[in-house]
């Protein structure tokens, strides 16, 4: 599986994603500058964390006008796997690839810490290696990760099983205390209706190495790999 890691001028988790991806057998990865116009030859595209264009206005609001976004739209239409992490999730929402929006954390402070996610759906290319209800320990680092959508969108997300991850406590309960940013319905990550585009606020690439305190992020990349291998056959 050949992955593109999109590099916006203010991306700062681009290298982290690259290093994490390359730790999987069967994955190759390359940085792609935001002014490129083609994503041909890539099987999956990662939008990494960071502050795409400084994001002083609204996270991801300028990135949606990047030259690469047209190619991303095409890749999405071709059914390629697209994963937006943190700022990448914000960009996917701003650019209309995913519904809803991410606003300032409820307490208005940046938060960097470990969270527990409950896997809500495992019939997606990003979670097929997980069991439903499985708990993943990942890290967040964001100031604007409060997932917000109107009632209709929330209903549709439920109806089409698009909510993949929710913040929970260590018993898997969806408590307010376990919700680090005030996201509606404790939502941490969602997919599109076609299930080839996922955005999540926590960083799976920061949990791929025991040295750094956890490997639960590997489930996400292994799922992508397995889904890709399935398609290849």
């Amino acid at each position: 599986m050949h992955c593109a890691v999109l590099q916006f001028p203010g991306s700062n988790c681009d290298n982290d994603a690259l290093v994490a991806l390359r730790s999987f057998q069967g994955i190759t990865a390359k940085l792609v500058w935001h002014q490129e116009t083609s994503l041909n030859g890539f099987d999956a595209i990662i939008l990494p964390g960071g502050f795409s264009y400084g994001d002083y206005l609204r996270c991801g609001a300028i990135a949606r006008f990047s030259p690469i976004m047209k190619a991303l739209r095409q890749a999405a239409d071709e059914g390629k796997l697209i994963l937006g992490i943190c700022n990448g999730f914000q960009i996917l929402c701003e650019a209309g690839f995913l519904p809803g929006t991410l606003i300032r954390n409820r307490k208005l402070l940046f938060r960097c810490e470990s969270v527990i996610l409950r896997v809500e759906e495992n019939e997606t290319p990003f979670t097929n290696k997980c069991t439903p209800g499985q708990l993943l320990r990942l890290r967040i680092a964001h100031g604007e990760g409060c997932y917000t959508a109107d009632e209709k969108t929330l209903k549709e997300l439920e109806e089409y099983h698009q909510i993949l991850f929710r913040y929970c406590d260590n018993q898997g309960e969806l408590t307010t205390a376990a919700n680090p940013n005030g996201s509606m319905e404790n939502i941490a990550g969602i997919c599109n209706r076609q299930r080839n585009i996922v955005g999540l606020m926590p960083h799976p690439e920061r949990a791929c190495e025991a040295l750094l305190g956890g490997t639960d992020g590997r489930f996400v990349f292994e799922s992508m790999l397995s889904s890709f291998a399935g398609k290849e056959n």
């Binding site: 700062n12 988790c13 290298n15 982290d16 290093v19 994490a20 964390g49 402070l109 940046f110 938060r111 960097c112 810490e113 890290r139 680092a141 960083h203 690439e205 920061r206 190495e209 750094l212």
Partner: peptide
């Protein structure tokens, strides 16, 4: 320190 991103760069 939880307001600082102390993990970026994954190291």
């Amino acid at each position: 320190w939880r307001q600082y991103d102390y993990m970026v760069q994954n190291s």
